[in-house]
Simulated assay, not measured.
Amino acid sequence: MTMPEAALQGLHSDNPSVRLRATMAVGTNPDKKFVGELIERCAVEPEFSVREMLTWALTRHPPSETVPRLVAELGSQRTQARSQALHTLSKIGDRRAFPAITETLLADADEEVARSAWRAAVALVPPGAEPALARVLATQLGRGARETQLSLSRALIALGEAMMPVLEAAMRHSDPGVRRHALATEQLSRDPEAGFEFAIGEATRIVALGPA
Score class of each variant (00 low, 15 high):
3 M>A: 15
7 A>Q: 08
12 H>V: 07
13 S>W: 03
13 S>D: 09
14 D>Y: 14
20 L>Q: 08
20 L>I: 03
21 R>C: 05
22 A>C: 08
27 G>T: 01
38 L>C: 08
40 E>P: 00
47 E>P: 02
53 M>P: 00
54 L>T: 01
57 A>R: 02
59 T>D: 07
61 H>F: 05
61 H>D: 06
62 P>H: 09
65 E>C: 07
69 R>P: 00
73 E>Q: 14
79 T>L: 13
79 T>W: 10
81 A>K: 11
84 Q>Y: 08
86 L>M: 04
91 K>I: 00
93 G>C: 02
94 D>F: 02
97 A>Y: 06
97 A>R: 06
101 I>T: 00
101 I>H: 02
102 T>G: 03
104 T>E: 14
104 T>F: 12
105 L>A: 10
107 A>R: 15
107 A>L: 12
113 V>Q: 03
126 P>S: 14
127 P>C: 08
128 G>Y: 09
128 G>I: 11
135 R>I: 00
138 A>F: 07
149 Q>E: 10
151 S>Q: 09
152 L>K: 12
154 R>V: 05
162 A>P: 00
165 P>F: 11
166 V>I: 08
168 E>S: 14
173 H>T: 06
183 L>V: 01
187 Q>G: 04
191 D>C: 04
193 E>P: 00
196 F>P: 00
200 I>F: 06
203 A>N: 03
207 V>G: 07
209 L>T: 02
